[in-house]
């Protein structure tokens, strides 16, 4: 397996080029949380040609809706949610310069095509490993859509946030290649 690599945000085409499916990446910098509801608002804003509440160009969106924060802590448990549910909104964000996404589960063929076209990478992290993941979050700020509660857009400062490359710039797919390699004929 390729070795562990560190990546800082914002992302550039140059540092994404060498990433390969299945590679462990540790991300540091800022990522923005958004689930279905926030995606809907973001793409509505794009359609209405309004200014977006978060920078998109070169950024990473993390599909996550954390559990409530306990007093004295930075954030609750904040693992990934299923990417498929935002797939309908993703092409518009890619067209506006989004370069990375973190979630769980695979993407639609259409999103994979758009990712290849715009040079973006999809990362996955473990569903159901939220307590561990939260330890890599060192700062949180609600940036937009506070009324959405757990679905509000939060800017997370992350340090060595552990992900895996699921779709790279070559258009390869972790789920396909992984499965083909370990499938046993019955």
């Amino acid at each position: 397996m390729p070795s562990i690599k560190r990546l800082e945000t914002p992302l550039t085409q140059a540092n994404l080029k060498s990433l390969r499916v299945g590679q462990r990446i540790l991300i540091s910098g800022f990522v923005y949380t958004a689930r279905d509801a926030a995606h809907k608002r973001l793409t509505n804003a794009i359609d209405a040609k309004e200014k977006l509440p978060i920078p998109i160009d070169g950024q990473i969106i993390y599909y996550a809706g954390p559990s409530p924060t306990r007093p004295g802590e930075i954030i609750g448990s904040a693992g990934p949610t299923t990417a498929t549910r935002v797939d309908v909104y993703t092409p518009k964000l890619l067209a506006n310069g989004l370069k990375g996404m973190i979630g769980k589960g695979h993407r639609t063929p259409e999103v994979r095509m758009e990712m290849k076209k715009y040079g973006a990478v999809y990362f996955v992290t473990v569903g159901g490993a939220a307590a561990l993941i939260s330890q890599k979050i060192t700062g949180v700020k609600i940036i937009a859509y506070e009324d959405l509660g757990t679905e509000a857009i939060r800017r997370l400062r992350v340090e060595d946030f552990p992900v895996l490359v699921a779709n790279d710039l070559n258009g390869d797919d972790l789920f396909e290649s992984g499965r083909n390699q370990y499938k046993r004929e019955q």
């Binding site: 972790l174 370990y182 499938k183 046993r184 004929e185 019955q186």
Partner: peptide, 15 residues
Amino acid sequence: LINATGIGPQGWGGM
């Protein structure tokens, strides 16, 4: 049979 599908932990491939 299910573990022969190759889907693996998180769907990342495996037994």
